[in-house]
Amino acid sequence: MEIIAPDKRKIAVRRGIVDKAFRGVVTAGSMISLIVLALIAAFLLYRGFEVFRDFGLKFFTSSKWDAGADDGSIAPSFGVAPMLVGSVVVATIAISIAVPFAVVMALFLCFYAPRFLRRPMTSVLDLVAAVPSVIYGIWGYAILMPHAKGWAETINHWLGWIWIFKVPVPIFERSPFIAGVLLAIMILPIVTSVAREVYSQAPQDQIDAAYGLGGTRWGAMRTVVLPFGKSGLVGGAMLGLGRALGETVAVYLVLNLVFKVNFQILASAGGSVASLIASRFGEAGPYELKALMAAGLVLFIITLIVNFIASSIVNRAGKSQR
């Protein structure tokens, strides 16, 4: 209960037994998120620690993923370096495509769109944000890939002299580029929602002033709205990054997993920790399963850090504006 009290005064409330029990139960129940997070870390560590012990840092630096032979003639060897690098590469591509479009989309919805478009677009944003990733995946495989393959060929044709746009063999399907484009489309609704929320809180008087001074709408955008929304946008982008890093099925369907660290984004070879787990899970033996658990723990910790940073940025941005 909240009693309106003078600042310095502390009120010692004596509660009845019912309230004490009630508060106890609710407090205990609210710890569920903390408990689940701790349990996730604990269980993945428990199942995967053997692999960390056996491979140490090599688990992060090695490019070999080999379950070994059952008779022991080939020793198993696990390293997630290509998958980690692949996850980051794909997510980076996704973010660098999604953020500019999200900014344009948010500015459009806040300042440029005709009134009749704005409300329905809110529903559209919510709808596409709710489309499951498996549907993005099947669409990406069937519809996007043939198109994106053409774009990749064009990029390779004109910019092929830049190292990252080179391809060793001219196969353009299932590349990090295509996975990145698909993820960009997938995370665009979230990043747009955040950006729109932040831009809509831009101080109206300053916008009006800038509009009056320069006389152009774009001037007001550039001098007031964009700087104002910068930190919120960074937070939104980080949220999108977290999503992109953790995405499994959509990436699995459009990316060729290859155990070789690859930065050539148009080539048909990439990696993703989440997709690795999904693809190897079915046929994994007990030891490989442990390696997958270890990989899951790594993914969990990375996304946790990214999301921590994202939410603290978004929260701070939200606070300073209110």
Partner: peptide, 26 residues
């Protein structure tokens, strides 16, 4: 712990779905 609870709820919303699956599997 209200602040902490909010914080952890936010953190939980960032758990990749495959990790949730892997956790329940294990």
């Amino acid at each position: 712990f209200a602040k902490a609870v909010r914080f952890f709820t936010q953190a939980m919303s960032g758990v990749p779905s495959i990790v949730a699956g892997l956790f329940i599997y294990s």
